[in-house]
């Protein structure tokens, strides 16, 4: 039988996710206590970067999938 690898065990995947979600949470809380050197006023808003990063990526995926892909997707032999 083939050797078991680290992510073959669902418990390890779960553990990784738990670690990840908790660090996300910790960052969220920490943000309120860090003073920011800012160029723009909104950088002082609490968790601005977190919200921006999250929203940016969701928008990125939604636009790519539902706007760009229908426009540009072609069969693999399109140019042949």
């Amino acid at each position: 039988m083939e050797k078991k690898h680290i992510f073959d065990n669902p418990r390890n995947v779960k553990l990784l996710l738990i670690i990840f979600f908790s660090s996300v949470l910790i960052l969220f809380i920490l943000d309120f206590f860090v003073h920011k050197h800012a160029h723009f006023p909104w950088e002082h808003w609490p968790v601005f970067y977190a919200v921006y990063g999250f929203v940016a990526c969701v928008l990125l995926v939604l636009v790519s999938r539902f706007v760009l892909r229908p426009l540009v997707k072609r069969k693999e032999d399109y140019y042949e």
Partner: peptide, 18 residues
């Protein structure tokens, strides 16, 4: 501290979205 914090936040929340 500000740069490290904001950049980490940006990346972790992008990862969260993913």
């Amino acid at each position: 501290l500000s740069h490290v914090m904001t950049q980490t936040e940006l990346l972790f929340y992008s990862a969260l979205a993913f």
